[in-house]
Design a protein around this nucleic acid. Sequence first.
DNA 1: TTGTATGCGTTATCAT
DNA 2: ATGATAACGCATACAA
Lengths: 359, 359
Amino acid sequence: MSTPTAGAPRRATISDVAREAGTGKTSISRYLNGELSVLSPQLRARIEAAIERLDYQPNQMARGLKRGRNRLIGMLVADLTNPYSVEVLQGVEAACHALGYMPLICHAANEVDMERRFVQLLTTYRVEGVIVNALGVSEETLRPVGGGGIPAVLVDRSVEGLVADMVGLDNEGATALATRHLVERGFDQLWFVVQPFAHISSRRQREAAFHQALRQYPQASGRTVVLELDDADELAQTLSALDAELDAAIAAREQRDGALASSAAPRVALFAANGPVALALARHLNQRHGANWQKRVALLSIDDPEWAELAGITTIRQPTYDIGYRAVEFLHERIDGAQASARDCLLPGELIERASTAR
Amino acid sequence: MSTPTAGAPRRATISDVAREAGTGKTSISRYLNGELSVLSPQLRARIEAAIERLDYQPNQMARGLKRGRNRLIGMLVADLTNPYSVEVLQGVEAACHALGYMPLICHAANEVDMERRFVQLLTTYRVEGVIVNALGVSEETLRPVGGGGIPAVLVDRSVEGLVADMVGLDNEGATALATRHLVERGFDQLWFVVQPFAHISSRRQREAAFHQALRQYPQASGRTVVLELDDADELAQTLSALDAELDAAIAAREQRDGALASSAAPRVALFAANGPVALALARHLNQRHGANWQKRVALLSIDDPEWAELAGITTIRQPTYDIGYRAVEFLHERIDGAQASARDCLLPGELIERASTAR
DNA sequence: TTGTATGCGTTATCAT
DNA sequence: ATGATAACGCATACAA
């Protein structure tokens, strides 16, 4: 059994190559930067050979130091556990590839100090720009970014006090679309379930848009339920309470409509503000009532994770890939010096109808 | 509306701080590196003030260049879409934090040339080590890593011809555990479903271990089904065929056991080699037969994604967090110069029993 | 066409 | 205790 590498044996530098090729460093540098027209064929050949022999690879750190830009951009992700983030990431990566950037992916894992630590780190590495899917807790921690600092574009969430471009879902349109769908399907009690707002703008926007949209439908009533996903005890408690209220609502309806109404019982619909909320709801209901829970209550969610099809959940699918792609394009313009005032790019969602909201 | 930053206004350097504090760069450097004992209180105060005033932050690129190490390690992930990867990643991040490393996350998205491009990039950035969840297609693309190149540790999969440490699931143990569970539950036809092996060692290992384990149970028979997830048409076709065979198997059993056996019909179990396969199977079966599919056939999967509980799937949960954490620890030892021969670290899986394998 | 010299922002060596 | 000065690996203005 052979032994893997330990201390690296010092890599070849540009000077080594120059010596090996019997020339100066300048020519090597020229070769590396594709200034081929100014190199005699012989020299060029010697350089090529030397590079090959020494397995030379230019040191990007040194390069970046010298030229003042390193083609690095930071991608600060709040929660990679959320499929939404991964999908956005794929758009980001594609755009970076196309535009010649290298994204440094930083995963805050929903921890505020992680976020702080990462923006700190990204600035000390002199990234040329940052794409931020922020925790949004405080503009404080994002100080070095946006506004007077390095160019930034926000994804999904804007953060108060931070002036920067932003791209995300058209929350108002998406929510209206979903609400309308539920009402048209005959649900007249709509419960909007959302995580604690914290400072997360998209949650607030969706909730506001929900109540706004509801005003168009006098036949339906709505309420907001806040669900804390990160605390198992509190979550279980809230879900139990919710379940009890559901029982009451169903009982009330049955009583009002008479016995024959039981077949038309499920008139309340749960509207999950995002995928994680929907998963928590579905898990709870499923555990409590088995696969039959869908007969008790409807469920619709913003975000369209892979399992939604399996569980037959109606969703609003976000244009995640495009969101990521556009974000990088925005950032690219800023890095190139665009000075326009902060722009918002709101992309439309798409309704995916499934069994969970059928009659 | 204010306008975001464009071209950065050149950050302060160590020289700027020195001038501002009326001293030399050396003292600033000393201050930054915590050599506080050799600084007079007055100078120290002046430096502190200057740094504050100029909002100075040391340039890590330059630092790394000078000291020859940058505390960067690469984390090459084959597929972030797989929850397994994200979970491993969390262990990696925690360990990096603890050991003072900064992980550069690179997402190959199952593309071979992406993988090649990233190892190239990581070496030119002179990362001190790499954790690789490889596509495994060819040792060729990983040449600069492991063996004679920069220290590397493999995760989940080893790649032929590449000598390096490796940490992952104890595939043999986990598969045996699962097989035994299925047999004990009374299933006597076990179909092991796995993606094309390509060069992915863990798939091969699990399949081999499956047939190996099966030899202990003469009452049960097994076979391997290869499922190509990336080609929708081929996938649909294979799944249909599978479904037909399932019908045949059920019919055969009913005939043999007589009419009364129909209640005890489901004696065939699907053993998914990993989470993505399980999802594909569940989606198909659910779409074809509705929620009742669980009455037709059992399902067990290695990997325990979030939706498994919702769908009631029995799984083998991998110690993902530990896998990531251990990987970084291994790497750390190599970076520090450990010369031992390549080690393997195989961690045990845990059986999570759910409805999908009940009688 | 090719090479020399200087500097990017830091740290390390050596004086003072 | 403090400060010049020389590298680190590379790119570029300038000279040849």
